[in-house]
Amino acid sequence: MVGPIFGTPRMGQSYNVQDCAYAVIKRENGDFAVARTPKGIVLLGGGVENGESERDALYREVYEESGYRARILVRLGFATQYINNSAKDKFRLKRATFFQCELTEKIGPPVDQDHELLWLSYDKAHRKLLRPFHRWALECVK
């Protein structure tokens, strides 16, 4: 899979590769679903765990972060992001598949209690999203 690459790798630095799946969710009024986390504003989604498909990871992550079930409408594309956190000595290459989704039914409260589901306008979401590859995915749906 080839897609845009965000961030700059450091020469000689090894990176832990993390496969991820994220949801771009747009309501009829034009607002987008994002999660407020201790690190900042992100799209719903996250890492693919051992043995999971991208789709299963997406469903699990959306539920854990919002308390809702999701339905995939279309696969938007693939993008990667280099994450350089020198302070914590963490260097990751996040390889992500992005899906346009809708939330279906509320199952319960979010499992991740430090995540809060927010609905933001396109401009506000685009401005506040922490990761450039999340902003790119939002642009795919605008």
Rank of each mutant, 00 (worst) to 15 (best):
39 K>E: 09
39 K>F: 12
4 P>N: 14
88 K>F: 14
105 E>G: 14
97 T>M: 09
11 M>C: 03
86 S>F: 09
96 A>T: 14
111 V>R: 11
34 V>M: 05
5 I>S: 08
89 D>G: 07
121 S>I: 08
35 A>S: 13
48 V>T: 12
58 L>D: 03
134 H>K: 03
51 G>T: 09
127 R>W: 04
18 Q>V: 14
89 D>K: 15
124 K>S: 13
44 L>V: 10
93 L>D: 05
5 I>H: 08
16 N>F: 08
141 V>P: 03
3 G>K: 15
66 S>T: 15
58 L>R: 05
52 E>F: 07
98 F>L: 07
11 M>R: 07
24 V>M: 02
141 V>L: 05
50 N>H: 13
2 V>I: 11
141 V>M: 06
136 W>N: 05
63 Y>C: 09
41 I>V: 15
122 Y>M: 07
94 K>G: 00
20 C>T: 05
63 Y>K: 14
42 V>D: 03
53 S>I: 13
41 I>R: 00
55 R>I: 12
98 F>Q: 01
33 A>D: 04
25 I>M: 01
119 W>E: 02
123 D>S: 04
42 V>R: 12
32 F>N: 00
93 L>P: 05
25 I>N: 00
59 Y>E: 11
69 R>Y: 09
111 V>C: 07
97 T>A: 07
107 I>N: 12
60 R>N: 08
88 K>V: 14
25 I>C: 06
67 G>H: 15
116 E>A: 05
63 Y>Q: 09
138 L>V: 00
77 G>Q: 09
96 A>D: 03
130 L>M: 03
121 S>C: 12
53 S>W: 06
115 H>P: 02
65 E>W: 00
105 E>P: 14
109 P>F: 15
50 N>K: 14
102 E>F: 11
82 Y>H: 10
82 Y>S: 10
102 E>D: 11
142 K>C: 06
108 G>Q: 11
73 L>K: 15
134 H>A: 08
99 F>A: 11
52 E>T: 14
99 F>R: 03
39 K>H: 13
34 V>H: 02
126 H>Y: 08
21 A>K: 06
137 A>N: 03
53 S>R: 13
4 P>A: 12
99 F>H: 13
52 E>C: 11
13 Q>G: 04
87 A>H: 09
124 K>F: 10
65 E>S: 00
96 A>G: 15
36 R>V: 10
2 V>P: 04
94 K>W: 07
116 E>P: 04
39 K>L: 13
86 S>C: 09
77 G>E: 08
106 K>E: 13
45 G>I: 01
20 C>N: 08
138 L>W: 00
5 I>K: 11
62 V>E: 02
37 T>E: 11
117 L>P: 02
121 S>D: 05
103 L>S: 15
142 K>T: 05
44 L>R: 01
19 D>I: 05
94 K>T: 04
129 L>R: 02
83 I>E: 15
58 L>Q: 01
1 M>L: 14
131 R>I: 02
63 Y>R: 13
9 P>V: 11
110 P>D: 12
88 K>N: 15
64 E>A: 12
3 G>Y: 12
7 G>I: 07
36 R>E: 11
25 I>A: 03
45 G>S: 02
132 P>N: 06
48 V>P: 01
132 P>W: 03
59 Y>V: 07
4 P>G: 06
110 P>W: 13
127 R>S: 10
37 T>I: 06
51 G>A: 09
18 Q>N: 10
42 V>K: 10
129 L>F: 03
109 P>G: 09
7 G>Q: 01
24 V>K: 01
44 L>A: 15
74 V>W: 12
122 Y>T: 08
